[in-house]
Amino acid sequence: MGAFKKMELAVGVFVALGLAAFFMLAMKVSNIAELGEDKGYKVTARFENIGGLKVRAPVTLAGVRIGRVVGIGLDTHTYEAVVTLSIEPRYDRLPTDSSASILTSGVLGEQYVGLEPGGMDEYLKNGGALKLTQSALVLEKLIGRMLTNAVSGDNPPAKTP
């Protein structure tokens, strides 16, 4: 029976290790905090183009994560993308004239919403809207513009001689 006790102990350690592994995967590797009940207040922002922004993308201010994207929709009248942000309640002093831009973390990184605080004394509340927005940089458009600039800039000197 002693052998069986030892075996039970080993199995117990094994199961505990397995659960610890999942605990680590949940807490340290994935972001379980995002799955918690959403207590943040909601703010909407309208963008001409959101590029590759996804639901659950982070919302940051000065590089600090303060919330996340909880909804992406399309306004069928203005053809603008309506992005709903959920901001953690402890960051409740965001001026109403703050601006939102869609940024990319690094070259290969994913897109996120970056906020720039404004200067007003009134603060954003649940259901508020961010008026100043800057759309995502769409790489193809940029390249296209660069090419047109290059063509129109190159042609005149080519003609002169």
């Binding site: 094994f14 290790l17 397995g18 610890a20 592994a21 999942f22 680590m24 995967l25 590797v29």
Partner: peptide, 9 residues
């Protein structure tokens, strides 16, 4: 699954 979790972690 326990082994896979341990492997991954």
């Amino acid at each position: 699954p326990l082994l896979a979790g341990i492997f991954t972690a």
